[in-house]
Design a protein around this nucleic acid. Structure first.
Length: 288
DNA sequence: AAGATTGTTGCTTA
DNA sequence: TTAAGCAACAATCT
């Protein structure tokens, strides 16, 4: 669920709070969330400083003094919560009371020398953390396509990516090796904004449609970052706050509701590229 | 109580 | 060789 705008929201907040801080202790509550040797993981981080919080696509990349990098992927339900030193974790769930975050699903905690803490919280343990060296970090980053909203993502590259591809455009938008950071929500939102049926084969798109889609990707992601991402159940920022982009969603989770653009179409939900895909059957015309 | 949920990987097929 | 599609996987909630 955290996609580019959500992960970027977390990255920006964390950069403010943890860059320059020294890690006193790493506490591992569930070793299966660590995709590195646990001893190496701890040794690479303890007594080290955090130099930078970066990101590629949905992957967070912390530069650690000592030359290594901490990678964190939140997958579906992962959260990365920063708390000042006086914050008390109440934990547990309650139906009547909003849940405290972080909660009983903390798998890794980083304790800084100033008493503040960073928690990796993940209900489903799909996410992971790991330590890599510079070469491995480069290898991982190189496997990602261009990053939207940067000068690396050009219209020309986008054209080249789509050129000759037979796959549904949605599957291309979701492919991290082709474009970094787009997931199910923003793939659907971008296709809607561009008036393109998400099942359209990429090679069938006309020039004007490709240009519209390119612009839509950038516009949707930019606006979603501005509103600190979309929360529909578990996403929270590094300070435990919900995202506010929900109010701007045009198709995602609007199944069976009237289209906000044409008011005629009823938002459909079909499996395209193996995922639930929402679209307006009236203004997102299928191209034969 | 079986199915839905998601991003990613790895396998199979064309 | 490469692209496309699909199953598998992590674990929990409904």
């Amino acid at each position: 669920m955290p996609e580019l705008p959500e992960v970027e929201t977390i990255r920006k907040e964390l950069a403010k709070f943890v860059v320059g801080k020294k890690i006193k202790q790493v506490e591992i509550l569930h070793p299966s969330a660590i995709k590195s040797n646990v001893k190496t993981f701890t040794a690479s981080l303890e007594k080290k400083h955090i130099r930078k919080v970066g990101r590629v696509g949905k992957l967070l990349i912390f530069t650690i003094s000592g030359g290594e990098f901490l990678l964190i992927h939140l997958k579906m339900t992962g959260q990365l919560i920063y708390r000042h030193k006086d914050f008390i974790i109440k934990g547990g769930h309650s139906l009547s009371r909003p849940k405290e975050i972080p909660d009983k699903y903390i798998w890794v905690a980083w304790h800084f020398t100033d008493g503040s803490n960073l928690y990796f919280n993940d209900m489903r343990k799909f996410g992971y953390v790991k330590i890599v060296d510079a070469a491995e970090k480069e290898r991982i980053m190189a496997a990602y396509g261009p990053e939207p909203l940067t000068k690396d993502f050009t219209l020309k590259k986008f054209f080249d990516t789509l050129d000759g591809r037979n796959a549904p455009i949605k599957s291309i938008l979701l492919n991290q090796a082709l474009i970094a950071g787009i997931g199910n929500i923003y793939a659907d939102e971008a296709c809607f904004a561009a008036k393109i049926f998400p099942g359209t084969r990429a090679s069938k798109l006309r020039k004007a449609e490709k240009i519209r889609l390119f612009k839509a990707i950038n516009a949707v992601l930019k606006k979603a970052i501005k509103y600190k991402g979309t929360t529909f159940h578990s996403f929270v920022s590094a300070r435990g706050k919900r995202g506010n982009f929900w109010d701007f969603l045009q198709v995602y989770k609007r199944d069976k509701k009237p289209c906000l653009r044409c008011a005629t179409g009823i938002i459909a939900n079909k499996t395209i590229a193996g995922r639930n895909s929402r679209y307006c059957p009236v203004c997102q015309k299928m191209i034969q």
